[in-house]
Design a protein around this nucleic acid. Structure first.
Lengths: 172, 172
DNA sequence: TGGAATATCATGGGTAATTATGGGAGTCAA
DNA sequence: TTGACTCCCATAATTACCCATGATATTCCA
């Protein structure tokens, strides 16, 4: 009887929380949006009830993930610098690509209310062009929040590019 | 959770590891379809009881597979990007041409109910032209769901093309 | 070995729980 | 007071969960 066992890389042993599928929800007059229940349950094991969000550096969208992901980033980054003997980096917090630090700086913590909604800060909705509706897009380890019209166009292009690369047989 | 019991026929004593054969099942008024028992048992070892599905980029059909495949895809990608210190990819998602990311966005997680059925989202049935009946087609590591009439034609064309190819260059 | 008891499967339906959404009351600070 | 925010409650629609049935298959045993 074959038993499925986790590989022994020493990496995180818990399953990668994954955000799948897309959902379109309303933004009410108070600026609240329901985070899709499926996403909330993907975050379920985390102590902090809410999400981390920041304006995408590439798309006109909001990037978001759980606190666990942020911790994981920090941990791996720390491991890497210690392994490399670069203690200055670990202690002072300066690195060549300040990306992680930068992300930290521009991120917001968005806690859930009792009904699983978050309030999108104006800074983020303005970046994404979101007004009264928002499209949640699962990206596996993280998710994005788009203005529905903007995402629709983006998604069409994305799928078309993918389709062009495939030569029969579907995706393995 | 549905209890799964090994058959005692001695015919196939080890769990089936892939999806084979085709089945045609009804879609009821609530949009539910039974996933063929043989397929469910092929998914039996996975912790998550259900399937992942997305509209085929090539055929007018639904592509489906187990959760395990998706997790593996995700994990490999995350480890790969973080191990290399490439936080850019992890944070803004510019990796492998966006294949994993796009699949995540267009996929749906379809959990089994107590009877082994799934609910097909409108997005997927519309893409495949499915109304009240669905044909499950095993493709080894994954399977497809078709509208029966559509699949029939597709299958005929597929076999005919294969036959033509084989007869042209000798048999087998 | 023939047939009754037992499982499994696909299918259907009823009902409780959840979800997304809306709004009001209370709090705190400026 | 006026906002901005949190906490609590209400509701319609959807979904999850439970049980029931007929049709096949499978097992058991007299």
């Amino acid at each position: 009887m074959p038993v499925r066992r986790r590989k022994k890389t020493g990496k995180s042993d818990r399953p990668v929380t994954s955000f799948i599928s897309t959902y379109e929800n309303k933004v009410d007059r108070k600026g609240r949006v329901s985070v899709p229940a499926a996403y909330r349950s993907a975050l379920g094991t985390e102590t902090y009830q809410g999400v981390i969000a920041y304006p995408s550096l590439i798309d006109g969208a909001i990037e978001a993930f759980g606190r666990g992901m942020l911790d994981e980033l920090n941990r791996r980054k720390l491991d890497q610098t210690l392994d490399g003997g670069d203690y200055t980096q670990a202690l002072v917090g300066r690195s060549d690509d300040g990306l992680v630090e930068t992300i930290m700086a521009i991120s917001s913590e968005l806690p859930f209310d009792g009904e699983g909604r978050i309030i999108l800060p104006a800074r983020l909705t303005e970046h994404a062009g979101i007004t009264d509706r928002a499209t949640f897009v699962g990206r596996g380890t993280r998710f994005q929040i788009w203005a529905p019209e903007v995402y629709e166009k983006h998604q069409l292009a994305e799928v078309e590019a993918l389709r062009a690369r495939l030569s029969g047989g579907g995706i393995q």
